[in-house]
Simulated scan of single mutants.
Amino acid sequence: MAEPIHITRSISIDPAEIEESFIRASGPGGQNVNKVSSAVQLRFDLRNSPNVPEPMKRRVAALAGSRITKDGIILITSNAHRDQPLNRTEALARLVALLRAGAHVPKPRLATRPTLASKKRRLEGKSVRSAVKRMRGRPSGEE
Rank of each mutant, 00 (worst) to 15 (best):
A2L: 14
A2Y: 07
I5C: 05
H6G: 12
I11L: 06
P15E: 11
P15A: 09
A16C: 14
A16W: 06
E17H: 13
E17V: 04
I18N: 04
S21E: 07
I23K: 04
S26I: 01
P28S: 08
G29I: 10
N32Q: 15
L42G: 02
R43W: 01
F44R: 10
D45K: 11
L46C: 09
N51Y: 05
E54K: 10
P55T: 03
K57R: 15
R58K: 15
V60K: 08
A61D: 06
A62G: 10
A64C: 03
G72A: 14
I74Q: 01
L75M: 15
T77E: 08
A80M: 06
R82G: 13
Q84N: 04
R88G: 00
R88P: 06
E90C: 03
A93C: 01
R94S: 11
V96G: 03
A97V: 02
L99G: 12
L99A: 03
R100M: 03
H104K: 06
V105C: 01
A111E: 08
P114Q: 05
T115E: 04
T115R: 01
T115I: 03
L116F: 08
A117L: 10
R121T: 15
R121I: 07
L123Y: 09
E124G: 08
G125M: 08
G125L: 05
K126C: 01
S130M: 11
A131K: 14
K133E: 12
K133V: 04
K133H: 10
R134N: 12
R136G: 12
R138H: 09
P139Q: 12
G141N: 10
